[in-house]
Amino acid sequence: MKFFLVFSLALLSIVFASDNLDSHLLMYGDDVGLLCNSWRVAGEANNLSPWKKVPEECRGYVKDYMTSRAYVLDLQMVANEAVGYARGIELGDDGNDVWVFDVDETLLSNLPYYAHHGYGYQVFNHGLFDKWVENGTAPVIESSLKLYEEVFRLGFKVFLLTGRSERHRNITVENLRNAGFMNWDKLILRDVEDYDKSATTYKSEKRSEMVKEGYRVLGNSGDQWSDLLGAAISIRSFKLPNPMYYIA
């Protein structure tokens, strides 16, 4: 009974931390690493309430994960599963089979930016991030480049669907090409009328437009659940790891 009570209190500390962004995740010393790992896994499984920043106790954990071999291997695992799926599909003869890719933390890494902003511990600042985007220096995510090249080789049309602003089109194109991404069929960015929409609504609408135009969305890769859920979802979706931020 005593064990059950202690365990229940530990779980409640996590639950209440999701509702109160300023609260501590936990107060259990040596268990911090394990519970931060549980917090990350819950986020990747879309089981957390919407959150705005990494919990205080998990600052070091998220930094260590994002700069570790474990993060690279997790990315590779997702890409390998996606390649296996893509190779098993028999594409139509009309050229209308599509694979959709998000850009940030999916094709391009913004780790150099987040390294200076607490790896997600600081609340997201659109102005500062836009300045980073305008530098056009986000590095490639290597495993995603290999997946990108493979689905293109297999005959998929490749559509890039990003929450970046339309005003950043030229620098985004330059950054993508410098990182090795070539020959996409469409690059879709947020226009003025999309600014007030949630990411889920915006991306759902854009995928719905693809379907209305006769395309079949067979694959979708993104680091946020808002890249993957909503309307006109793909036959298979692949979630890349990202414990640094949450976009609804």
Score class of each variant (00 low, 15 high):
Ser38Glu: 11
Tyr28Phe: 11
Glu81Trp: 01
His24Tyr: 10
Leu34Trp: 11
Pro50Arg: 08
Arg87Trp: 00
Val54His: 00
Asn47Lys: 13
Gly95Gln: 08
Gly43Glu: 02
Leu48His: 03
Leu91Ile: 13
Asp22Ile: 11
Tyr28Arg: 07
Arg40Gly: 01
Met27Leu: 15
Asn37Arg: 14
Asp64Cys: 01
Ser49Val: 05
Arg69Cys: 08
Asp74Val: 02
Thr106Ser: 04
Asn96His: 14
Gly84Ile: 09
Met77Leu: 10
Phe101Pro: 05
Tyr85His: 10
Thr106Asp: 00
Leu25Phe: 14
Leu75Arg: 13
Gly60Thr: 13
Val98Arg: 10
Val98Asp: 05
Tyr85Lys: 08
Asp31Phe: 14
Gly29Met: 00
Asp74Leu: 03
Glu57Trp: 02
Ser49Met: 09
Phe101Asp: 04
Leu25Met: 08
Leu34Val: 09
Ala82Gln: 09
Met66His: 11
Gly88Ser: 09
Ala82Phe: 10
Ser49Asn: 11
Val32Met: 09
Ser38Lys: 10
Tyr65Asp: 12
Asp104Leu: 03
Lys52Cys: 07
Thr67Trp: 01
Gly60Cys: 06
Met77Val: 06
Gln76Gly: 02
Val78Ala: 09
Leu34Tyr: 11
His24Asp: 13
Arg87Asn: 12
Asp22Tyr: 10
Gly95Met: 07
Leu26Trp: 00
Leu35Pro: 00
Val103Asp: 01
Cys36His: 04
Tyr28Lys: 03
Asn96Phe: 08
Ser49Arg: 13
Lys63Cys: 06
Glu44Ser: 06
Asp22Gly: 14
Asp93Arg: 12
Glu56Lys: 13
Ala45Asp: 06
Cys36Leu: 11
His24Trp: 06
Leu26Gln: 15
Ser49Glu: 11
Leu91Thr: 12
His24Gln: 12
Leu75Pro: 00
Leu75Thr: 03
Asp97Glu: 02
Cys58Asn: 09
Leu21Cys: 07
Asn80Gly: 08
Leu48Met: 07
Trp39Tyr: 07
Ala45Leu: 15
Leu25Ser: 04
Trp51Glu: 02
Pro55Leu: 01
Asn47Val: 07
Asp22Ser: 14
Gly95Val: 09
Asp93Asn: 13
Gly33Pro: 05
Lys53Glu: 07
Gly60Met: 09
Asn80Glu: 14
Tyr71Leu: 15
Glu81His: 10
Val72Phe: 06
Asn20Ile: 10
Val41Met: 06
Tyr71Lys: 15
Asn80Ser: 12
Gly88Ala: 02
Gly95Ser: 10
Ile89Tyr: 02
Asn47Pro: 00
Asp102Trp: 12
Tyr61Lys: 06
Asp102Cys: 06
Asp64Ser: 15
Met27Phe: 13
Arg87Gly: 13
Asn20Ala: 05
Ala86Tyr: 01
Tyr65His: 11
Ala42Val: 02
Gly29Tyr: 00
Ala45Cys: 05
Lys52Glu: 14
Arg59Phe: 06
Val54Asp: 00
Ala86Lys: 03
Ala79Trp: 02
Ala70Asn: 12
Gly33Asn: 15
Ser38Leu: 15
Cys36Pro: 03
Leu25Lys: 11
Asp31His: 07
Glu90Gly: 10
Trp39Asp: 08
Leu26Met: 12
Ser49Cys: 01
Met77Thr: 14
Val83Ile: 15
Asp31Asn: 08
Asn80Gln: 13
Gly43Arg: 05
Asn46Trp: 07
Gly92Pro: 05
Leu75Gly: 09
Asp22Thr: 14
Asn80Pro: 00
Val72Gln: 13
Glu44Ala: 09
